[in-house]
Amino acid sequence: MNTSELQRLKMAWLAAKEAGDTQTQFGLLRDHPEGLAELSDFIAAYHATGADVLVEEPQTILPVTQRAYQKALERVFNAELAFANLTELRKNRNVSKVEVARGLRLGVDVWNKFEAGAIELVSLSRQQLERLAGFFQVSTDQFARLLDQSQPALTLNRRQTRQASRSEQQGPQKQSFADAIKRSGMTKEDQEFWLQ
């Protein structure tokens, strides 16, 4: 059985489990004998890890726990995040720009620069990248990929001549994370938090 078919079966079983549809759960096992061993292992792991028991998540997750959780999801479902950029990630988490900025102790203007692709990835330290990724509960590699894919939206300056507008498109200028913080209206404490 190929990986995508097995992944589809796992997702169907989880959907049936959440809906309380035992007939569909048994039907999946009965109708797919070629994937019975893998699906049985998945179901056993689901119950062994207590996934069917509701547990209140702690407010903060240690970075090592978060990375382990993300790796486990990637191994089980063999998939990367399905987001194209940081804006889609934020919207999927159902948080506003203001909530993200407040949660990360950033200015909204700085977060806007992240979403616009104006912050240079190379200007982020490992610790800064871990803080940003940890807020969204994704790996640092995934956050870096999403930041790279958050490209500036190119616009034309309508006041330019026709010839100039054809030859030159304008977008946000790339800048380092430190410069963005220094130019922001953030409090001194929040600036020190990110620049230490």
Rank of each mutant, 00 (worst) to 15 (best):
V122H: 11
V122F: 05
N92P: 00
E74G: 14
R102N: 02
R102Y: 00
A153E: 12
V95M: 06
A164I: 03
L132V: 03
L129M: 09
R162G: 01
E130I: 14
A82E: 02
D179V: 07
S167T: 03
N157W: 11
N157V: 10
A79H: 10
V138Q: 10
E120Y: 02
T155C: 06
R102V: 06
G185Y: 11
A178E: 15
Q169P: 08
G134Y: 03
R166K: 09
T87L: 10
L121R: 07
T87V: 13
N85F: 10
F77T: 07
S167D: 05
P172N: 10
R105W: 10
N157Y: 12
T155V: 14
S139K: 03
Q127Y: 08
Q170G: 02
G171N: 09
D141F: 11
M186L: 12
R166Y: 02
T187A: 15
A72D: 09
G117N: 03
S139D: 13
Y69L: 14
N112I: 09
G103A: 08
A180T: 13
R105G: 02
Q142C: 07
F114V: 02
L129E: 00
L146S: 03
R131D: 00
N157K: 12
Q149F: 09
A101M: 05
E115F: 09
D109T: 11
R102I: 01
D148C: 05
L146W: 11
K174V: 04
R145L: 11
R90K: 06
A72W: 08
S96R: 04
S123R: 10
A118C: 02
S139N: 05
S176P: 05
F77Q: 08
N94I: 12
N112H: 03
K188Y: 06
G185C: 02
L124N: 00
F83G: 00
A133N: 11
L146P: 07
K113P: 01
F83T: 07
F177T: 05
A153R: 14
G107D: 15
R93E: 04
V95K: 02
Q137A: 11
R158I: 12
S139P: 02
K188C: 00
N94K: 15
L124H: 04
A180W: 14
S123A: 04
